[in-house]
């Protein structure tokens, strides 16, 4: 008598197969071309913009600030675009092309499929961010050292050594520190949360365009919701409650707070990211990703094809 083999509810090898395949699929869509654009952007910035800064003590810091802000802008742009478009595209495409039929007809639990797809997208973003972070680190280190050298030569041998030391400390704080990598890591966490939101929407959406638009709306809400929350709290302190404030409170509770998952502005200004903040961001991001992935599975588990 034939007895069907037992299939575990969740399997790491199966998830890794789907994630690996999704990563390869995206790589073959030539998304890594963006990295070439990034490298060219950084090179062009160095060649044509950074050298033009003149005058004042702050010019050196401004150069480093511009390098960091441009790089983080590109990192944020790439990771957000990839998180939304790749996640929003992959599942509807599998349904439309009927490739999902052949996958789900194998002993593959739907949760494995969803997690695999999400991890594949995140792996691609992670690898890309590592490359960008590496490039930024090299450029930042090179520029910082070059700026320090020019400060030393400007002050000359007779300069005040305390002032010089202070300048070196300030420039080093703006240069390559662990905070640079922490900011990249937080950009990755933000992309992970956005991708999990896109995953959730794509499980019930009927078209890719709907998924894209709705995810972008949630992203925008997430970016301003901290300000909204503050306004609501102030209004409630004054005893003012309306339907709009109740609705806003609901939005605050349901949608992710992307202002919370962001440290790059501080790092651009040379501030230190406290370890506790990083830990909090990590926990909050994991919570959001787990929540939205669970909800995705809940809507996807009974979906009919």
């Amino acid at each position: 008598m034939i007895i069907p083999r037992k299939t575990s509810f969740i399997s790491l090898p199966r998830i890794s197969v789907i994630a690996g395949h999704t990563f390869t699929q995206l790589v073959r869509m030539k998304v890594f071309y963006f990295l070439i654009i990034f490298a060219v952007l950084i090179w062009a910035l160095k060649q044509f913009v950074l050298g033009t800064f003149t005058g004042g003590d702050t010019a050196s810091e401004q150069q480093l600030r511009l390098l960091k802000s441009t790089s983080y802008f590109a990192m944020n742009l790439f990771s957000i675009v990839m998180a939304i478009s790749a996640t929003a595209l992959l599942i509807p495409k599998d349904i439309e092309d009927r490739t999902l039929y052949t996958i789900l007809c194998k002993p593959v639990p739907r949760l494995d499929y969803l997690i695999g797809k999400l991890l594949g997208v995140l792996l691609l973003i992670f690898v890309s961010l590592i490359f960008m972070d590496l490039l930024l680190s090299v450029m930042l280190h090179y520029n910082t050292q070059s700026l320090i050298a020019s400060e030393i030569s400007l002050m000359g041998a007779g300069g005040n050594s305390e002032v010089l030391q202070e300048r070196i400390t300030t420039l080093n704080a703006h240069g390559l520190t662990n905070n640079i990598h922490y900011a990249t890591l937080v950009i990755f966490f933000k992309a992970a949360v956005i991708a999990s939101v896109a995953l959730l929407i794509s499980t019930f959406s009927t078209s890719t365009i709907f998924t894209l638009i709705l995810t972008i709306i949630i992203l925008l809400i997430g970016m301003i919701q901290a300000d909204a929350r503050e306004l609501i709290l102030k209004a409630s302190e004054r005893g003012e409650t309306s339907i709009i404030s109740k609705l806003s409170m609901f939005i605050v509770l349901v949608f992710p707070d992307f202002q919370l998952i962001s440290v790059d502005d501080g790092v651009i200004d040379g501030k230190i990211v406290p370890k506790l903040t990083l830990l909090k961001i990590t926990i909050v991001s994991f919570f959001y990703v787990a929540l939205y992935t669970s909800l995705s599975w809940f809507t996807f588990r009974k979906k009919e094809f």
Partner: peptide, 28 residues
């Protein structure tokens, strides 16, 4: 039911091979 297992359960699919009409696979 497939070999006694409820077809909505993943276990039932361990013994099934399926060829859909006009199968599409990952073109890459």
């Amino acid at each position: 039911r497939v070999f006694g297992a409820d077809s909505t359960r993943v276990d039932a699919r361990s013994e099934i091979g399926f060829l859909p009409e006009n199968p599409y696979f990952y073109k890459h």
